[in-house]
Design a protein around this nucleic acid. Structure first.
Length: 323
DNA sequence: AACGGGTGCAACCGCGAATCC
DNA sequence: GGGATTCGCGGTTGCACCCGT
């Protein structure tokens, strides 16, 4: 026996909502609240299923929602939290007042993923592609290494060329301050990738692992001139978290901190979020789920946050303590 | 002007888990 | 205790719009 559908498919309208439907739903919820989503469409005179109503309300009609462009600071928060939490969109959205998980997810999938790729950062692991290449060389044996690394680097190079030719990446916004890694000139970029490939080969010979962030090139997501860290134009509309973030100096402009300090910070951030989950679930229906989530995450967390601490958001910045 | 491909967003789907009865 | 119901989440899809040719 299959799962019971959330509603009868017949006599249920689907697709775009009309302004009339929006009005009906909004006015009904304003009067009666959101107690039983299954009954809401019936009582509100809507030919929609309850689930559709709930989505419409939570993702679009809720009065506290913010519509429009994400600010640079919001971008920063999304990337930072994604590096720690992965695709936990609801948790990430909880840190951004007025944004829904759907908003954040869409923004990530359509903009931020490409932006990170364009900066040479793997959006899944939040590590520079070069670092991933280095990991390949240390975990595989020749001749697998050279073939795989070349193939992967080729993909990266192709992607970059594609991005550059499509002009989807503004290289002027990316600050690679090392004279050896000047990407501000697109003509240099192939050379840079080739240089990286050359370094990979050196690494393969046992001369140490290249990391973009400890080559002394000042690489970081958040350098002042990068598109992520520069939020001056959003000064007026900063959320409390953003204000707090600004208050303690914002994003790191170099990567001078030791690996141990970074690890400690990352643990703090992750721990704080987990703590919020526990607080939020106290006495509620979500505690068992969160426990399981955590167990699941403990198995998966290394996929997101080993050596990826390029952002600097303090635990105090967490603004939603009831996730 | 017409067409085709790319992009972004709203909405849908399926699942797991909590709660209800 | 267990089946039915409800809710919330993350992944995916559909479609309107934009832009280049």
């Amino acid at each position: 026996m299959g799962r019971i559908p959330c509603c009868e498919k017949e006599n249920v309208k689907r697709g775009q909502w009309t302004p009339e439907e929006d009005n009906k739903l909004a006015s009904y919820i304003a009067q009666h609240g959101t107690r039983n989503w299954r009954l809401i469409p019936k009582n509100a005179g809507l030919q929609r299923c309850g689930k559709s109503c709930r989505l419409r309300w939570t993702n679009y009609l809720r009065p506290d929602l913010k519509h429009g462009q994400f600010s640079d600071a919001e971008e920063h928060i999304i990337v930072k939290f994604h590096s720690v939490l992965g695709n936990r969109w609801s948790l990430i959205a909880a840190q951004l007042p007025g944004r829904t998980d759907n908003d954040v997810k869409n923004y990530w999938n359509t903009k931020l993923k490409k932006k990170l790729s364009g900066m040479g950062i793997d959006p899944v692991t939040h590590k520079p592609f070069s670092h991933l290449m280095a990991e390949i060389t240390t975990t595989l044996n020749p001749p697998q290494v050279s073939h795989l690394a070349e193939a992967a680097l080729g993909c990266f190079k192709d992607e970059m060329l594609h991005l550059l030719t499509k002009k989807r990446v503004d290289l002027n916004q990316i600050n690679f301050s090392s004279p050896n890694l000047n990407h501000n000139n697109p003509n240099n970029f192939n050379q840079t990738v080739d240089n990286a490939a050359g370094k990979m080969k050196l690494d393969n010979d046992g001369n140490g692992i290249m990391k973009l962030w400890d080559m002394g090139n000042g690489f970081s997501y958040g350098s002042p001139s990068s598109s992520f860290g520069n939020d001056e134009k959003n000064e007026g509309s900063a959320s409390p978290a953003v204000a707090a973030w600004r208050g303690h100096g914002g994003i790191r402009t170099s990567v001078a901190e030791t690996a141990a300090a970074e690890e400690e910070e990352r643990r703090k951030l992750k721990g704080e979020v987990m703590e919020q989950e526990e607080i939020g679930s106290e006495g509620g229906r979500g505690d068992g789920m969160m426990m399981r989530r955590r167990q699941h995450d403990q198995h998966q967390q290394h996929a997101f946050n080993v050596d990826n601490d390029l952002w600097d958001l303090q635990a105090d910045d967490l603004i939603n303590h009831m996730v």
